[in-house]
């Protein structure tokens, strides 16, 4: 629980960027309306690449701060896995809701 709290604290640094990508995907879904099925595959790949790119950029720009989390037992890899899983799950959930 303590580790999750620390990871979420670091996630605050880039949650907005992740959310904006999700929002733009939802905008495209809404724009395509009934034809949105055709772009779901592209959106999934776009979101996946965006998640990895954003995390890479943040981990490079916040490299010094990552030592703080490392000293608390939270590795960069763990932060990456947890935040990416949370963000991608939220993305899938919004996709399902929009598709209905």
């Amino acid at each position: 629980m303590r580790q999750l709290k620390l990871i979420l604290r670091f996630y605050k640094e880039f949650v907005l960027a992740d959310f904006l990508v999700t929002l733009s995907c939802m905008g495209l879904m809404w724009y395509y309306g009934k034809d949105s099925d055709k772009i779901i595959g592209i959106l999934l790949w776009f979101k996946l690449i965006a998640i990895l790119s954003i995390f890479y950029l943040v981990s490079q720009s916040q490299k010094k701060q990552l030592y703080y989390y490392q000293n608390l037992g939270v590795t960069t890899l763990r932060i990456g896995i947890v935040t990416s899983t949370l963000d991608f799950s939220f993305f899938i959930l919004t996709l399902i809701i929009m598709h209905q």
């Binding site: 010094k64 701060q65 030592y67 703080y68 490392q70």
Partner: peptide, 11 residues
């Protein structure tokens, strides 16, 4: 083991 880097690391 804990590590104090030569730069400021606390957010």
């Amino acid at each position: 083991i804990l590590y104090l880097p030569q730069f400021n690391f606390i957010p």
